[in-house]
Structures are given as structure tokens and as C-alpha cells.
Design a protein around this nucleic acid. Structure first.
Lengths: 257, 257
DNA sequence: GATTTTAAGACTTATATAAGAGTTAGGCTA
DNA sequence: TAGCCTAACTCTTATATAAGTCTTAAAATC
């Protein structure tokens, strides 16, 4: 009896959720629905989401089905589970950003908190390359931040960060914004933008005179250039970041699974 | 009735499998058991493993529990599922090795099959650094392969590969072994060693005279140096590989999830 | 009669549901 | 205030049903 009942509900749900495509598994539909609530801002980072049972009742599916959807989102770092407490929208604090997105470690293999000195922060038109990599219309404006990071008390990285003014308008208006060390946290708390994925392209380049003077070494010294495109959950590129690193005492660590 | 029965069996299983630690979930114990069968060689790469139902019966657990264990191993690239056919021990052919472990792409972002010319293949004592990174006893012998890879018909990468003679004895004995393009496939088929994970350390270095002559550029040109330690499933380091890449027309692509 | 097509069945993994066992935190009681 | 109880969670396991794949043998066709 209860089985038949559940089966009927399931059919109804499929009809309601999708256009009865028939072949998309229930748990995936639930997953998409949850993603929509997160990206739509209904559930903000740090919020508790309804319990598995509540969601199951609301959506007329069983707890296990909701659970499977949530599990995948946990694996994608969208949600965080805490047994006995609830499930939360992942909050990407500085530590997590450092752990996840910062790959430079010193020769002993330990990750150190980089210091940071902002050199400039101004608005300008996006270059051709920038519009292409950030999916902007030609002539769009961007915020351009330049800063130097210290590692082990030595200037080691020159960072150039490009952000679309459209999304990060407030940032460019202040000439000398008090920029925090970990920007991704700021993006999330002040702009509602969460970085979920990044594509990095690494090259060896020769230090320019500019690089050389900032890092205190000779022009022509090999530097590791990291060009990163940071994306939101739905794949929209929202930040372009070029880092030029001195690798005499540090290296870029990558684990291939 | 059947519940009690299952519960009793479960208790038995826990006692048999572990030393009744009491709190380790069943599916994890199953997972460890499956890993043991794979690493122990009972199931070789490419083999079908028993069906979920068979394993469930053998181990006195339900199909779903076996399934959860297998799911994790699929996520770790240890097993591969094919609906309607069965579950197989993952086989790491050249394509997969290229897809997974080769990160150099050309400027247009496409991954190309690198050509390969072996320069030398000889045995010698391991250096201090090598013994440390490969967990070898001091004075151990290694096979040392040096080769040049062509990308887009241009010599682009100089690879130096270090392997413990203990594991790869046959390799060093032949002066001019006909080395295939993708070595990891060879390790698996001829030596029963499967590479599962790798740690890569990247630096920008200046080309030495040796590099320069092999790659046809000037000494001092910045090169991307990738030092890779390749590990088996149980974390044993089995290969050390140093690649020095010209990055004028190519770059190292990394996706951060 | 030989060959191709079709359909049933015996496998497999995939999905959905349900129930009970751990965890946590806050409130109640001695 | 210390300890215990309880409610609200997630976690684990079990079971049932769906869906995909291959084999085999009967039926249709040439």
C-alpha cells in the first residue's frame, strides 16, 4: 500500500519537476533544485538548509533520495554536513581559500600564509584578452589590482587581478580600499559571489625590469607565471589573476589524483 | 526474522573482518577488503570482479553495502562499472595516462600526443635526493632514463625518469629497450605496478647548456621544471620524473576543483 | 534447409524507499 | 552546577524495483 502510494507520488514529482523527460533520475532533479536554491541566494553561505527529512517530505521523495543528491553536492564542496547538527551551505573562509587555491609552498613543503602589499587598484577598459577570458562585451570596464605577496619575509609573488566592474563595482571606486589578504572571502561576503573552480595555466617566463625591481632580483631571472581564471558554480568566469612567482625558495605544489 | 538474521551475520562479519573495533562501518571494511584483493593481485587490471550480489552473499551483507564500498573505489579510479556487464578493475591505458597525468597543452588549449625519443637508459646508484624521495635504502640502485619529447614537431620536454631497480629490474638490463611512449601502461602490464596518484612540484628554472642544445634554444631561457613523484594505491613512491619544458608555445594546465 | 530476426530469460548495475543506529546540543532535574 | 534525558539531526544498512546487456532459442524469411 505505502509502496504504491510512494510510487504515485514519484510519478507526480517527475511530472512537476521536469517536463516528464522520463529518464532523468529523481536524485539528479533534486540536486539541480538544491543547486538552484543555493545559487539563487535562497540559502546563503553558512545557512543551515532544511533537514533531509524535511526536504524529503516537501518534495515527496524518501530521505535516501534527498541524501544522495546532497552527497554529490558535498563532494562538489557546495554543502557541508555535520552529523547531529545539520547540512550547511559551504562557507569559504580564508583558510579554505588558502588551502584550496593557493599552491605555493616553500622548499620544506609547508604552506605558509603569504603577506600582502597592494600597489594599486584602479578601473580601466578591459583588454582584448581580458574580455575574451572573462566573457565580457568589448569595451567593458574592469577593476585592476596589483599587489606583491611576501613569503617567508621576502617579496615572492606579483599578482595582477582583473575583475569585471559590472560585478565588483564597489571595489574599483575606492582608490585605496583596505583589501584583505584573501579576496575570495570578500567576494563571497560582500558581493555574493562564490568561487568554486579555477583553471590555471602555468608557464616559465623571464622577469621584466618591472618584476625585477619589485622582487629584488635581476631582469631575465626565470619566474613561474600562473594565469588563473576563477569560476562560479555555474561556470561563469568572474576573476582573472596573473601571478609571477620567484621559485628559488618555493614551488608550486600539485596533487594529481 | 530476516532482520535479526542479517544482524547476527553482521556481528559475525565485524568480528571476522576487523578485530571487532566496533565502530568502523561495514562498507568501509568491505572497501578495505576489496582494495586488498586488488593490490594483492587476486584481481588484476581488466578483470571482472564478482557481481555485487555475489559479493554480498559471500560477505553476508546486503547488495547496497557492497555497492557503497564499490562506489568509493570507482570514485578513486580503482574500479570501473558498466551497467549490465559488471564491475572491472580499472585498466590504465595510454589514453587514460595521457588524459590524467600529462598536463602540457599547446597555446590553443588542446592536448596533443607527444612524440618521444629515448636518449639513454642505464643503471646507477641512487643519489641522496632520490633515495629520500623514493624511500630507498642508501646505496640502492636505480634505472635512469633520459628522453626528449616532441610537441607539435618541436623538441619541447626533457624527461629524466628514475626507477628503483628492485621493482623495475628488467628495464635497466637492456641498454636500448624499446620504450613505449606511455610508460605507466608498461609498468602495469609488465611489472604489475599501477600508478594511482602523483605529487608534482613546479618551478621556473634557467636552461642549462645541456637543455639548450637538446631543445635548440639559448642557455638561460626560462624552462618549466616539473618534478613528479608517482605513487601506487597504497602510497608507495615508485617513480621519480623530472621534466624540463619549454613553454613558449605550450603551458601546464591545471584545474582546481 | 540455411540464414536472419525477434523475443524471452538470466544475468548485471542503477535507483528508490524504509528503518534503525550514531551524534550533537540544549533543557531538565537532582 | 553536574549529570542525564530527549529531540533533531545525519549515518549506515537493508530491501525492492527499474533499467541495461548479453545469450539463446524459437520464429520468420529467403
Amino acid at each position: 500500500m505505502s509502496l504504491t502510494f510512494a510510487a504515485i507520488h514519484r510519478r507526480k514529482l517527475v511530472l512537476v519537476l521536469s517536463i516528464a523527460k522520463g529518464s532523468i533520475p529523481l536524485y539528479m532533479q533534486i540536486k539541480d533544485l538544491l543547486i538552484a536554491r543555493v545559487t539563487g541566494g535562497e540559502w546563503a553561505p553558512g545557512d543551515v538548509i532544511p533537514s533531509e527529512m524535511q526536504l524529503a517530505r516537501e518534495l515527496n521523495v524518501s530521505q535516501g533520495t534527498v541524501r544522495k543528491a546532497i552527497t554529490e553536492l558535498v563532494e562538489n564542496n557546495v554543502l557541508v554536513r555535520r552529523q547531529g547538527k545539520g547540512t550547511f551551505v559551504a562557507i569559504h573562509d580564508g583558510d579554505r581559500a588558502l588551502f584550496h587555491f593557493f599552491h605555493i609552498v616553500n622548499d620544506s613543503g609547508t604552506k605558509i600564509l603569504p603577506g600582502c602589499k597592494t600597489l594599486s587598484c584602479r578601473r580601466r577598459r578591459a583588454s582584448r584578452q581580458e574580455t575574451s577570458k572573462l566573457n565580457l562585451s568589448s569595451g567593458a570596464r574592469v577593476v585592476c589590482i596589483e599587489r606583491v605577496r611576501n613569503l617567508d619575509n621576502q617579496p615572492t609573488i606579483i599578482e595582477t587581478i582583473i575583475l569585471p566592474t559590472e560585478l565588483f563595482g564597489k571595489l574599483g571606486k575606492l582608490q585605496a580600499w583596505d583589501l584583505p589578504n584573501t579576496l575570495y572571502e570578500l567576494y563571497e561576503t560582500h558581493f555574493g559571489i562564490t568561487i568554486h573552480r579555477a583553471e590555471e595555466q602555468l608557464r616559465a617566463v623571464a622577469a621584466t625590469d618591472h618584476d625585477a625591481s619589485l622582487l629584488g632580483l635581476e631582469a631575465g631571472t626565470p619566474l613561474l607565471e600562473i594565469e588563473r581564471t576563477a569560476l562560479t558554480l555555474d561556470g561563469t568566469p568572474v576573476e582573472l589573476r596573473i601571478s609571477r612567482c620567484r621559485t628559488s625558495n618555493h614551488y608550486y605544489q600539485n596533487t594529481v589524483l
